[in-house]
């Protein structure tokens, strides 16, 4: 069965370097490198695996919504041997929350599907900047596809039955789900190991174009896009509250036993009841 997968990826700032300017209270973004959302690479790997397993005729399209610079992210994904890349970029998309994002992505995926039916939409479990994990399931619902999220293990596609089977991680256990195709999946980091792209794939990617779509290229209700189409508003951002620094004892100055005794005194003063806890 020739499977056509659409992967959704996002370019994100390297969040380990994002800080709040203490004077202005705004985000310091300058000089922070952009990277591909690491979870999305697991989505790419899943799509590559499906194409290999299902043999000839399968194809993979990657799509990203973002500023023109997000082309870099798409180029990186093309380097894995992905067939086609589409960048959805327009000022009309700017400021979108997760709901508005699903409107734009869904419209683009419908257009892709009109030319070549889509069997799978694959997303990373969440982005590391927003951390919401809402776009994948929202997209699944909007596209009316079977929804299988937080996948921790892919069993595979059963082409005869037209279904996909996958394990997903819950808090108290794992469940095996079977979903009719077309399906929308979100992939966790436990699902697979990202391959090291081959040199021929990387070189071949240099010749592949990144198609650029604006709002004019998709059929969508424009009032549902961008900041205007976003029901949520960021009211305020601030640095995380910090706990006050407490009392720090240096064990080397006394002995470990003294420090331990002192800390236990303090904890007991504060109401810790270790006598009854055991």
């Amino acid at each position: 069965m020739a499977i056509h997968s659409v992967i959704c990826v996002k370019q994100v700032p390297d969040t380990t370097q994002v800080r709040i300017d203490p004077d202005t209270g705004s985000l310091i973004r300058q000089g922070i490198p952009s990277v591909i959302n690491p979870f999305d690479l697991h989505a790419v790997e899943a799509a590559l695996k499906f194409r290999e397993e299902q043999g000839e005729g399968g194809s993979i399209t990657v799509i990203s919504m973002g500023p023109p610079q997000a082309e870099e992210t798409l180029r990186k994904v093309l380097g894995f041997g992905v067939d086609r890349a589409i960048l959805l970029t327009d000022r009309a998309f700017a400021g979108a929350d997760t709901l508005a994002t699903t409107h734009a992505l869904a419209a683009a995926i419908r257009k892709i599907a009109a030319a070549e039916p889509v069997d799978l939409v694959i997303c990373g479990k969440q982005s590391i900047d927003g951390d919401t994990g809402q776009v994948g399931p929202g997209l699944a619902h909007r596209l009316g596809m079977s929804q299988v999220t937080y996948i921790c293990g892919l069993v595979g596609i059963d082409p005869e039955a037209g279904v996909i089977r996958a394990w997903r991680q819950l808090e108290k256990g794992r469940e095996l789900l079977e979903a009719k195709l077309p399906a929308a999946l979100t992939i966790t980091e436990n699902c697979n190991r990202i391959r090291y792209a081959s040199l021929p794939d990387l070189i071949a990617a240099a010749d592949k174009p990144v198609e650029v779509w604006t709002v004019d290229d998709i059929e969508v209700d424009r009032t549902k896009l961008g900041l205007k189409g976003s029901p949520t508003r960021v009211n305020k951002i601030f640095a995380p509250p910090v706990r006050e620094r407490g009392e720090v004892l240096v064990a080397a100055e006394s002995s470990a036993a003294d420090a331990a005794a002192k800390v236990m005194d303090r904890l007991t003063e504060q109401g810790l009841e270790m006598g009854l806890a055991g």
Binding site: A2, R51, E52, E56, G57, G58, S59, T61, G81, D83, R84, E116, L199, P200, D201, I203, A204, D207
Partner: peptide, 12 residues
């Protein structure tokens, strides 16, 4: 876009 590019022939 139905081309499988698993092993593209490297450019010289």
């Amino acid at each position: 876009m139905n081309t499988t590019t698993n092993t593209p022939t490297p450019r010289r």
